[in-house]
Write a protein that binds this DNA or RNA. Structure first.
Length: 259
DNA sequence: ATGCCCGTATCGTACGGA
């Protein structure tokens, strides 16, 4: 089974490339982030025609997540149980589903904006709620994983230049401690292979030749429980999808499972 | 060329992204 996570930066803008990539990659289950549309406007018909069922949690201009599956789709949960609100809104940043033998969460962790910003505290609260929400599935025997845009580089080597992030979010100790807390539930970081260069970056800024200069970050992560991790045959970042006109600023992370 | 930011909401410009 081929499972992937991809922040598409608007499912509407990305639809042609999304459909082409699903077909060319042979992905069975895709955890998608930044749909940037409403549930009503999500391209369910096009994806259904391509053979995928959709579990969508999306409310408009910002955020929005989905699980696309051609391996079954059951027990859908929309939203993060116990998750915090931001400025009075429970944002659509998490959706989970069981796809055949595997249960997955698709998550879009809050950015944090700046250290000390309300959004940064929100990010840490959100991650604490995620840990509580996944603990039971993480400890269970069924293959389970949380996949998505975590907006955290787990280690200094996961950004192209650590000094460029002094004082910034995504690399701070509290954010990394939140990831460690998640690992403490029994999940481990399934680190993909880079298809080029030394580091499996998953995101490159659109600006200032970020991709050609490989000024990237590894912030799209796959956190799997023991059953999931032991079933991993291969994992890689499909950087080819970052190339060319109409690319997202994130590349898909692909995981092949022997399940 | 992988090539100097993009998408949405909205119709000139603000916001978010990281």
């Amino acid at each position: 089974m081929r499972i992937a996570t991809w922040n598409v930066n608007s499912v509407t803008a990305r639809l042609p490339r999304l459909l082409a990539w699903l077909e060319s990659s042979g992905t069975d289950v895709l955890c998608l982030q930044e749909a940037k549309t409403t549930e009503e406007q999500f391209p369910v018909a096009e994806l259904s025609a391509a053979g995928y069922e959709c579990a969508v949690h999306a409310t408009g201009r910002w955020n929005g997540v989905a699980v696309l599956s051609r391996a079954g789709l059951a027990d859908v949960v929309r939203g993060l149980p116990g998750g915090p609100e931001y400025e009075g809104v429970a944002e659509p940043r998490a959706v989970s589903a069981t796809c055949g033998p595997v249960r997955v969460w698709s998550v879009y962790v809050p950015n944090g904006r700046e250290v000390g910003h309300d959004h940064y505290a929100y990010k840490l609260r959100w991650l604490a709620a995620l840990k509580d929400a996944v603990a039971a599935d993480a400890a269970a025997a069924r293959p389970f994983a949380v996949l998505g845009d975590f907006n955290i580089a787990p280690a200094d080597e996961d950004v192209w230049d650590r000094s460029a992030f002094d004082g910034a979010t995504h690399v701070t100790e509290p954010e990394r401690a939140a990831l460690a807390g998640l690992r403490g539930t029994g999940l481990s970081d399934v680190v993909p292979r880079p298809l080029k260069y030394d580091h499996p970056f998953t995101y490159w800024d659109y600006r200032q030749l970020g991709f050609p200069k490989n000024r990237g970050m590894r912030i799209d992560l796959v956190y799997g429980n023991a059953a999931f991790a032991s079933a991993v045959k291969d994992s890689y970042v499909d950087r080819e999808e970052r190339k060319g006109k109409g690319a997202s600023d994130h590349a898909p992370v692909v995981v092949d499972l022997d399940v």
